[in-house]
C-alpha cells in the first residue's frame, strides 16, 4: 500500500473498499482482489444465469404455451421483465456498478428515468400522429 491511502468514506467499517492512489489513477480495492477464485466463480455464475434467461426467452417465443396462458401483452411484458433482469446483471456484475459507491451509481441510474419519461409521453401523446395520413 502506498502512503497516500485515503479514506473513501467507509473507514473502520469496510477496510476492503479503501481507495489507494497509484500513479496517475487509483484502484478501488474490491473483494475480488483478495479472493480471485470466488470472483471468477461469480462471473461464470452470472454467465449461466444470463444463458438460462435467454433459453427461457427462446422457449417462450417458440412455444405457444405462454401466449395461450397470459395473452400477447402478457408475453411481451414477460420479455421486457427478462430483458431488464439481464440488463441488471450486465450493469451490476459485469460493469461492477454494484461495487461502486452509491453516489456513482445514482449519478448513472437516476438520469435513465428520462427514458421512462419519453416512453410515457409517447404512450399518451403518440396517437396524435395516427390522425395524420402517412404514405
Amino acid at each position: 500500500m502506498s502512503e497516500h491511502t485515503i479514506d473513501a468514506g467507509h473507514a473502520g467499517q469496510e477496510p476492503d473498499s479503501e481507495v489507494i492512489y497509484e500513479g496517475h489513477g487509483f484502484n478501488v480495492i474490491e473483494h475480488g482482489v483478495h479472493h480471485p477464485h470466488s470472483t471468477r466463480k461469480q462471473i461464470w455464475r452470472v454467465f449461466f444465469v444470463m444463458l438460462a434467461i435467454t433459453v427461457l426467452e427462446f422457449f417462450i417465443a417458440l412455444t405457444p404455451y405462454t401466449e395461450a396462458a397470459v395473452g400477447r401483452t402478457g408475453k411481451i411484458g414477460i420479455f421486457f421483465l427478462l430483458t431488464v433482469i439481464k440488463a441488471f446483471y450486465i450493469v451490476g456484475y459485469f460493469m461492477h456498478l454494484k461495487q461502486e459507491k452509491m453516489n456513482m451509481a445514482y449519478a448513472i441510474l437516476i438520469p435513465l428515468l428520462f427514458i421512462l419519461y419519453l416512453i410515457t409521453l409517447l404512450m399518451f401523446e403518440g396517437s396524435v400522429s395516427t390522425h395524420i395520413p402517412l404514405p
Binding site: 485515503i6 479514506d7 473513501a8 468514506g9 473498499s17 481507495v19 489513477g25 487509483f26 478501488v28 461502486e100 459507491k101 453516489n103 456513482m104 449519478a107
Partner: peptide, 12 residues
C-alpha cells in the same frame, strides 16, 4: 480528500 464518486476520472 474524499473522492465523491470513488472512481478514477477516466472511468467516471
Amino acid at each position: 480528500g474524499r473522492v465523491p464518486m470513488g472512481v478514477p476520472f477516466g472511468k467516471m
